[in-house]
Design a binder for these strands. Structure first.
Lengths: 297, 297
DNA sequence: ATCATTGATCGATTATTACGATGGCGCGTC
DNA sequence: GACGCGCCATCGTAATAATCGATCAATGAT
């Protein structure tokens, strides 16, 4: 395997080509003339070719030297770009980050969040991936994602989580449902309704039931949908009732459907929204700052 | 000025990303694990960012690390290309060379020479510049050219020259000129003819006169042309006679014109064709080999 | 609980880089 | 044509950095 020239050698060569003079080039590089001379000699010896032609009056580039200079300058520029990229990423909200989000959060939180991020931190590149919690955690451990935005708790090893805010559940029923407009419902009353829920795998399902202290087996669950929007349509058509997260309502998921929403009499009927990252991730503070940002926006 | 990462560090990082394991990567780089570990730490410290995420089971790349890896690989490839370019140029006839040629040689020698070069040394890139000797020497000293192919002698400082071969002069006259077909002419006889020569600056003019031991003032020179082809046309039209280099005849400069060529009775009526390069050029042997090639072809 | 694996750390050694001083060469000058 | 000047190469030495083997600490696996 042939040895490689040093970036330092290449930059010295570049300076030499620019100044056409060993002494001046050395001064520009903040090294002694002998150092630069030795570096050029070493470089030429390494490459096995003559790059510059010395004379007492000036220094000339060989035809090959010219080619090498061009390549060297390109390489040096690339290295500087690499460093600049890292420098830009050194401060929070200026690099790139891969965020996994579950489907019952993404459509309701991301539009506003991304808009705010773009406004406050235009350099920040946030890549989004929307999948079920289990898949997200898997991707997290595979290193495909850096941090997850999901509903907690969700069992996972070697991770840290941070709670951001609570997202209340509300009771959603058809327009003609026998319930006064401003009435609040009891979580326990759900047992007597045809409850529409998302299909297995969506944590919203589990969290909603748990928040209401309900057990799946004691409920009538006629159908399982794949998205909250679908469920809302089904509720609007009188097929049943459901539980919706407040953030979906805030995002106007009910607008135009006539479906009525009722708060629960009990407090704490909610899910916890939080971040999750690998416990040995080197970007913990940055994730934490992202959490602050999400909670605040 | 921010410090630069080392190519070694970048290659270690690349190996680490490839193997996902410090020990294996170190083995692949033929260094100890501690060395590679220290190098990565140093690199991260230098860039001020976390590139890899360590755990006891595997090594994961940060999102930024992924970006850095991509850039690093590109840089490393560029460096390898640079080295390869030089290696290819290390052996003669495989790099690039800038050759200056005078107008009274170029059209008659280059076609065949370049064809042979391409055949024997397809990797060799020879850049040609055609100008008068004085300009070529100037360009040579400016470093714009590496070597010249011209007629010798030509006064110049700090150069070395090498004679390659003699190029005989022949006497060229109109078809109806009063001279037996196979007759040879005396150089001294030129005094009585209307002699057409190239304009000032062409060394052919001086060399031709000197080869014939003639002085410009004792000749009838009705017109000065800018190219041998033009002169031949004028000779064909009966305007006068001229001296032509044998290489031009070999290149069939007379074909179709009816102009007759006559050798000189004297031997040594010729010009010397040779190479010239800066005396401190580092490619002397290569120029010499090029000379061999030209003389042989 | 114990063990195996892995990356980080430590101290010693070696290799590299850098410097100032000096030498040698080519060019211009007197 | 001898001299002086400017310039790059070389040398010896000092500082710096790279590398190694051994060991430690942390983390999963058994």
């Amino acid at each position: 395997m042939a040895r490689q020239p040093t970036l330092k050698q290449l930059s010295y060569l570049s300076a030499l080509a620019e100044h056409g003079h060993f002494g001046n080039a050395a001064r520009a590089c903040h090294v002694s003339q002998s150092t630069l001379s030795a570096a050029i000699i070493e470089l030429e010896s390494l490459l096995g070719v003559a790059l510059v032609e010395r004379s007492n009056r000036r220094v000339l580039l060989t035809a090959l030297g010219d080619e090498v200079i061009k390549r060297s300058r390109s390489i040096l520029t690339d290295v500087e770009d690499l460093v600049a990229t890292c420098e830009a990423s050194a401060e929070p909200f200026s690099g790139r980050m891969r965020l996994g989000v579950i489907p019952t959060i993404a459509p309701y939180t991301l539009p506003h969040l991304l808009k705010q991020l773009r406004r406050k931190h235009p350099e920040f590149q946030l890549f989004i991936r929307e999948e079920l919690s289990a898949r997200l955690v898997n991707a997290l451990h595979l290193g495909e994602l850096d941090v997850l935005l999901l509903a907690l708790p969700f069992a996972a090893d070697r991770v840290e989580t941070r709670h951001l805010f609570h997202d209340d559940f509300v009771f959603a029923c058809p327009p003609d449902y026998p319930l006064a407009d401003n009435a609040k419902v009891h979580a326990a009353d759900l047992r007597s309704h045809e409850l529409l829920l998302l299909e297995d795998g969506h944590c919203l399902r589990d969290h909603a039931l748990e928040a209401c202290s309900l057990n799946e087996v004691e409920l009538k669950i006629p159908y399982q949908a794949t998205s909250l929007t679908t469920i809302v349509q089904m509720v609007a058509n009188g097929i049943g009732v459901t539980l919706l997260p407040q953030m979906a309502l805030d995002a106007r998921i009910l607008s135009g459907t006539g479906v009525k929403a009722h708060q629960f009499k009990e407090s704490g009927v909610s899910r916890s929204i939080g971040l999750m990252w690998r416990s040995n991730s080197p970007r913990r503070e940055e994730f934490s700052l992202l959490g602050d940002f999400i909670a605040a926006s």
